[in-house]
Amino acid sequence: MTALLTTDLPLPAFRRGKVRDVYDLGASLLIVATDRISAFDCIMPEGIPGKGRILTQVANFWFGATRDILPNHLEATDPADYPASLQAHRDMLAGRSILVRRTRPLPVECVVRGYLAGSGLKEYQKSGTVCGIALPPGLRNADRLPEPIFTPSTKAEEGHDENIDFATMAGLIGADLAAQVREVSLALYRRGCELAAARGILLADTKFEFGLLPDGSLILIDEVLTPDSSRYWLADAWQPGANPPSLDKQFLRDYLEALPGWNKQPPAPHLPDHVIEGVRARYLDLAARFGIQA
């Protein structure tokens, strides 16, 4: 398979993100998940063949599994239902694109953590807190937290997102909306944990994004509970204090962290075949555990 690294459709470009190309259809947006992959805010020169289809199908599964908690932005997932101007591109769009309602995105990323890892672990080791939330002393990497915590971050257009406390988030979007977002994020995380546990997986942490419709209603947008936006660990191999085997892109991060001479700044290093195949295998494994054909 060849990785799809970019798209060029006969529509106005709305935005090109690290992974997704977004096109403007007026009241709706077309989101196309490419096979690009990023780490440490750098897009890798090589993509992961089929990754965009895997991400899209996993996200669509979770959009369906969580719609009773909060409505989402999906309008259509079959290119046959897209505008006539896109019908010539149906083969490329199939499985890796969605038509969505246009919203006003909230300027924060909504992270929920049930285990201590990543940037949360680093902050805890410095201060004993994560986003202003005090945690018990003596916690180790991959320890389960006493209860899931809501730890928002900024949504940086360039550079790194930064963890913020709840009060800062409330100052950005208003206290009532912040409280609603926190409650919904925790409910979505718990649903994810429940369905993942039934498949032998621990959902360590994840991020959600939300948008507002013209009437002010909150809906779930972007992606949800994908291996790009979440940490998924194999439950039978999880051991506090160690790095659990994962079904997400931690495999790529670990490779890059051990790579001599790269300072996590562009340009990103080329990826060897075994890393590309390793990431792809983990994403496919995750999808298969949920019965998803990607």
Rank of each mutant, 00 (worst) to 15 (best):
T154N: 10
D161K: 02
A178W: 02
C193T: 10
L195Q: 15
L145K: 00
G138C: 14
G200L: 09
R144T: 15
T206P: 11
R140Y: 04
I149Y: 01
A179E: 07
P244V: 01
R140M: 10
P136K: 15
A167C: 00
F210C: 02
L188S: 10
G138T: 02
Q239N: 08
A167Q: 01
S217C: 08
A170V: 05
P227Q: 01
G192H: 03
A156D: 08
M169V: 10
D143F: 02
D222S: 04
N141I: 09
D236R: 06
L202A: 05
L220H: 03
F210E: 03
P136Q: 12
R144P: 12
M169N: 09
G174N: 15
A175T: 14
Q239I: 10
L225S: 05
L188W: 00
D205N: 02
M169A: 12
N243F: 09
L135I: 01
W238T: 00
G128E: 00
A187P: 00
D176G: 06
L195H: 13
K122T: 11
Y189R: 12
G159Q: 11
T226C: 04
L213T: 10
T129G: 12
E157D: 15
I133A: 04
T226V: 11
I133T: 12
A178V: 06
K126I: 07
D222L: 04
K122M: 09
E194Q: 13
A198E: 13
I201P: 03
G138K: 14
G200C: 12
K122W: 05
I221R: 04
T151C: 12
A196E: 01
P148N: 06
L234K: 09
Y124H: 07
Y124F: 01
A187H: 09
G216H: 04
D176H: 10
Q239G: 08
I133G: 02
L202E: 07
Y232N: 05
L234F: 03
A187N: 06
P214Y: 15
N243W: 09
I133L: 11
D176T: 08
S230I: 05
L203Y: 11
E162P: 06
R144G: 13
G216T: 06
D165F: 11
T226Q: 04
L172A: 08
A167S: 00
G174H: 15
A204E: 02
T206H: 09
A198D: 07
V184S: 13
P148K: 10
H160A: 13
R231L: 11
D143A: 05
Q125S: 14
A235Q: 13
A197S: 03
L195K: 14
R199Q: 13
D215M: 04
E209V: 07
L186M: 09
